[in-house]
């Protein structure tokens, strides 16, 4: 029972990280209608920035996180401006190939700058933990912070898109860019802001991910990136609550599959679940059914 609980908590924690990454995929998809496959690699850049800030320059982890957020936000804006904006009118295949190119570029640049030797990411929470049931159940502070971060991000984003002028403008752009322009909304700026938010979230996810799984290499972001993309599709791409549900479920499935079925097969099982969900509900769990225009 306690082992079960332990796996559940680990699953929710891992899933929270997937959810934070998935939010970036889903928001960019919702507004720019593109899959930003370089999103996972922005996570890796965020983790490296925090690593150097904390390990090499001895900064406080919070400062390291802030620095990672700032640099990733900037990186996201620059990637969008240089790589994707010129392709606004291009076919989605051209955009997809470009995104894969950006992804390789970031990985190779990281390899050149920081080599492919793994860096040991520091434990930002100093190994602090809460022990329950006479110490048989250990919940680390990192786990709690991860889950709390995910909840806070969800609440803030929901309020932002639901209540603020900019957030509503984003939803308007995601529905109809032409009509949004007729309202006076600057669509290019809105897309840029979306990339900024997604990339800031990627930085947070990168730091949380590496606190839990400390070996940092230039390809660190790719597998979590793909899984978070899966989570976004699973929950319904374009939907913010969908990203949360998809991410958390994926994390739980992955941990349980690894614990009770087979560690080697856990990834395969994750993707199998995705395929089954998409067969039953092609738009994902919370995806909007595409209404035919009359």
């Amino acid at each position: 029972m306690i082992t079960f609980l332990n796996h559940l908590i680990n699953g929710i924690s891992l899933g929270s990280i997937y959810a934070i990454i998935a939010l970036g995929y889903t928001m960019v998809y919702g507004i720019a209608k593109m899959l930003n496959f370089a999103h996972g690699d922005v996570i890796m850049v965020g983790a490296y920035v925090c690593f150097f800030a904390v390990s090499s320059f001895g900064l406080h982890p919070v400062l390291g996180l802030v620095l990672a957020i700032l640099i990733c936000t900037l990186l996201g804006i620059v990637i969008e401006k240089l790589a994707y904006k010129p392709l606004r009118q291009a076919t989605s295949l051209a955009v997809l190939i470009t995104a894969i190119g950006v992804s390789y570029f970031l990985q190779n640049a990281a390899q050149l700058l920081w080599t492919s030797n793994p860096k040991m990411f520091p434990d930002l929470f100093g190994g602090a933990a809460i022990r329950l049931f006479d110490g048989r159940l250990t919940i680390t502070v990192g786990t709690l912070v991860t889950i709390a971060a995910c909840i806070i991000i969800m609440v803030v984003l929901t309020l932002f898109t639901g209540k603020t002028r900019m957030g509503k403008a984003m939803r308007a752009c995601s529905e109809d860019k032409g009509a949004a322009q007729l309202m006076g909304i600057n669509v290019n700026r809105t897309i840029s802001v979306t990339f900024a938010i997604g990339s800031a979230l990627a930085a947070i996810a990168g730091v949380l991910l590496c606190s839990a799984y400390p070996s940092l290499v230039p390809t660190t972001g790719s597998m979590p990136g793909i899984k978070a993309f899966t989570a976004a599709v699973f929950g319904g791409i374009g939907s913010i609550p969908g990203a949360l549900i998809g991410g958390v479920l994926l994390g739980i499935i992955e941990i349980f599959a690894g614990a009770y079925i087979s560690t080697q097969l856990s990834n395969a099982i994750v993707f199998l679940v995705l395929i089954v969900v998409l067969l039953v509900r092609p738009t994902g769990l919370l995806g909007k059914q595409i209404r035919e225009k009359v």
Binding site: R165, K168, A169, R171, A172, E175, D176, A179, A180, M183, G184, I185, K288, R291
Partner: peptide, 16 residues
């Protein structure tokens, strides 16, 4: 904007 409320649509009209 079909997925937004009537009032949010009007809010977008007043964006500028």
């Amino acid at each position: 904007f079909l997925q937004m409320t009537v009032e949010d649509n009007l809010t977008m009209g007043a964006f500028t």
